[in-house]
């Protein structure tokens, strides 16, 4: 049933903790060679989905496939082909990075010791200091270097830049870009760092309260969302509905609406009419519109 050529496949996934549904009927696929960014506010269900995919948690309903197999049953075998950077670095704190690296090198076939050493050097991580005493940024860098050491087919990053400063964050993304350039590794990541992920993600999924609001290529998402500023009621409600009205609010300059079904031609015609200013939106603006307070849901 699982397609081995699709690295990540989630179908109707449900996760329930007692009476609370953390994930309700979520479906998406991360295509090979793509970078899928799973976005959502804290508690939206991102981590539950990641845990199910890594075989750390059993789904309450629906199915997940990792590299075409069931991660709950085949976890040990699958993890040899997957690199993981967890939200909380889980390496033994007493071991030094040198010891950790040696330990991983014995664990995995095809360990690329040269590449790992090169990465750690670029990050300037002190390799003889206990892991537990490294800074947050250094821990994340060590985790990334180790996660890529066995040349995984899939890299899963669970909020890798959480709590990192701008310099550490930048270094992490540069290494990720390098890995993509070298091996076109498929990546699934969750993050709150929308600006950085905007240049790297090929696909985005936006979760809110356990439901997937959008799941599509970033390029098509950005192409169809526009903010319209209306001086007066230049557009009647039925017209706005036709354009896929997402939110509407009274801003300092009049009515501001966000629509989700605008194409290039439609945008040009609206702009030419003069009564409506048409603005493009970056990923963060689209995200806030979708999941911000008072957001209406799927678009």
């Amino acid at each position: 049933m699982g397609d081995a050529t699709v690295p990540v496949q989630v179908s109707g996934l449900q996760v329930r903790y007692g009476a609370h549904w953390a994930v309700r009927e979520v479906s998406f696929t991360a295509p090979a060679g793509g970078v899928y960014a799973l976005l959502g506010r804290n508690g939206a269900g991102k981590s539950s989905i990641v845990r199910c995919l890594l075989g750390q948690q059993r789904a309450s309903g629906g199915r997940v496939w990792l590299l075409g197999a069931d991660p709950w049953r085949r976890r040990a075998t699958l993890m040899r082909r997957v690199g993981v950077v967890p939200e909380e670095p889980d390496a033994p704190p007493a071991l030094s990075t040198r010891q950790l690296t040696a330990w991983c090198a014995r664990l995995y076939r095809g360990w690329d010791a040269g590449r790992v050493a090169e990465r750690l050097r670029r990050f300037a991580v002190p390799v003889d200091v206990p892991f537990g005493s490294l800074s947050k940024g250094q821990k994340a860098q060590v985790m990334l270097a180790l996660a890529l050491g066995h040349r995984p087919e899939l890299l899963v990053l669970d909020d890798p830049t959480l709590g990192l400063d701008a310099v550490a964050r930048r270094a992490l993304y540069e290494e990720l870009v390098d890995e993509l350039a070298d091996r076109a590794t498929t990546v699934l990541l969750t993050t709150h760092d929308l600006t950085a992920v905007e240049g790297i993600a090929s696909h985005v999924g936006v979760l809110a309260a356990g439901e997937m609001l959008v799941d599509e290529p970033l390029e098509s998402l950005k192409a169809r969302f526009r903010r319209l500023r209306l001086a007066s009621s230049a557009l009647a409600t039925p017209q706005l509905d036709q354009l896929g009205l997402v939110t509407s609010r009274r801003g300092p300059w009049g009515l501001e609406v966000v629509v989700s079904r605008l194409d290039e031609g439609g945008a040009a015609r609206l702009a030419a009419s003069g009564a409506v200013a048409v603005e493009t939106m970056n990923l963060e603006e689209i995200f806030v519109t979708l999941v911000g307070n008072g957001a209406g849901g799927a678009a």
Binding site: E174, V177, D178, L180, A181, G199
Partner: peptide, 15 residues
């Protein structure tokens, strides 16, 4: 190179 420019701009090399 693709890698150089991607790294510089921190964007996906495929792009």
């Amino acid at each position: 190179s693709v890698r150089e420019l991607a790294r510089e701009l921190r964007i996906n090399p495929a792009t």
